[in-house]
């Protein structure tokens, strides 16, 4: 009845990882429940809220909608990999200094989506930023301070 566990080889935030997963695990479940990386959050488990956003082989994905078995050989970046050893990423610093979070549960997803946006479009307009981040739900802030923070980082 219980499916055989399976080993998945992947690179997470630059470190090689072997994860023992159930065939039914999503990438989000593999990260959170199998290797204890709880930075990515579960808000909906069906790709609506973006709280579980990570970057997989350079692409922004909702990790709840990726099967763990699919990441064999892939490179994953999570919120835990955003800061360097010595300092926070500018997005993290700006979110902190501009009060772009209240409860903070959506913050890891917004940071990863914003990071992906700036990789693809280093100088987004407000409208482009709002459309890019429309897949990330925040119920606390009304989005103002998040949008401002991303635009501030983009301007350098």
């Amino acid at each position: 009845m219980i499916p055989e566990p399976k080993v998945v080889n992947t690179i997470i935030n630059g470190d090689s990882k072997q994860i023992l997963v159930s065939e039914r695990d999503s990438l989000l479940e593999a990260l959170r429940d199998r290797i204890g990386m709880t930075g990515a959050k579960e808000g909906c488990n069906n790709g609506n809220c973006g709280a579980c956003a990570v970057i997989m082989d350079g692409r922004l994905v909702n990790s709840c909608c990726v099967m763990a078995a699919e990441v064999e050989g892939s490179e994953i970046m999570t919120v835990e990999g955003l800061a360097s050893r010595d300092e926070l990423h500018p997005l993290q610093t700006e979110f902190l200094d501009n009060a772009a979070l209240q409860c903070g549960i959506c913050t890891p997803g917004f940071l990863m989506s914003s990071y992906a946006l700036l990789q693809e479009n280093p100088n987004p307009t407000e409208e482009e930023t709002r459309f890019w981040l429309a897949g990330n739900l925040c119920r606390c802030t009304g989005y103002d301070k998040i949008i401002e923070s991303v635009l501030t980082v983009a301007k350098g």
């Binding site: 959170r32 709880t38 959050k41 999570t78 919120v79 835990e80 800061a83 903070g104």
Partner: peptide, 21 residues
Amino acid sequence: TRPRRPDGVDKVTGRAQYGAD
């Protein structure tokens, strides 16, 4: 004044422990 919140760094680095964590 507008200081950083004490729990802020944990929340932007994914280290803050929410209920399901």
